[in-house]
């Protein structure tokens, strides 16, 4: 474990707490001008469920196991909140990204490009590829509504920073322990890349107190 990865995981936690806070505070999944994509949250739940199949078989540390349980539980809870508790505020007509394309693409790629052709390894690889593109429905929704509440932008900032810091962690691990993992490196780079234009708007506007509006 290194500081980059620890802070990255904490940013991931923060993003989940921001989302839960937003939903509890506004008691909805849609604010005045921004919405949370149910598809993205369902994709994240899928990512954690397919990645942590080794939850009981591969004990790394108490930290690792605790975080895995938290990510699975929180992502399922968020899906539950959106699907049941705050269902009335969830408008599927605005969540129009074709999620089946990214699920199908990630599954096909995981069957072709993986480290071992075993059920667990292919599921893990699928979860890595899926996580890279799981934010697309949310970003797509943002482009449709054209603006977002500040708390939604903080959620996206934390989420983007988590994987961005993992890139730094991978550089550090390659440099210190010759750790190489092409699949997570490339997927992580794509994942962080998807946030670039968001980060640009976030840093140039939101942090200056302006509203988050797409040009």
């Amino acid at each position: 474990m290194n500081l980059f990865r620890l802070v990255a995981d904490l940013m991931h936690l923060v993003s989940i707490f921001i989302l839960l806070l937003k939903m509890q505070k506004t008691r909805s999944v849609a604010g005045r001008c921004s919405r949370i994509s149910f598809k993205t949250q369902a994709l994240y739940a899928t990512v954690f469920l397919t990645r942590y199949t080794d939850l009981f078989a591969n004990f790394q540390s108490l930290y690792n196991t605790t975080m895995k349980v938290f990510f699975i539980a929180s992502s399922l809870y968020i899906v539950f909140l959106m699907k049941f508790k705050f269902k009335a505020t969830n408008d599927p007509r605005l969540d129009t990204f074709k999620a089946q394309y990214v699920v199908g693409g990630a599954a096909a790629l995981a069957l072709i490009v993986n480290y071992a052709f075993t059920v667990q390894e292919v599921l893990w690889t699928f979860s890595i590829y899926l996580e890279a593109v799981a934010i697309l429905p949310q970003l797509f929704m943002l482009t449709k509504t054209g603006e977002a509440e500040v708390i939604t932008t903080h959620y996206l900032f934390a989420l983007g920073t988590y994987r961005g810091l993992y890139l730094v962690n991978w550089i550090y691990r390659y440099w210190t322990e010759y750790y190489v993992d092409w699949i997570v490196w490339i997927a992580g780079a794509v994942q962080t890349g998807l946030y670039c234009d968001f980060f640009y708007i976030y840093f140039t506007k939101v942090l200056k107190g302006a509203k988050f509006e797409l040009p």
């Binding site: 790394q60 690792n64 071992a116 893990w124």
Partner: peptide, 10 residues
């Protein structure tokens, strides 16, 4: 190369 990948990251 196929390796029994033990994934130590989240």
């Amino acid at each position: 190369e196929p390796k029994e990948a033990i994934h130590d990251e989240l």
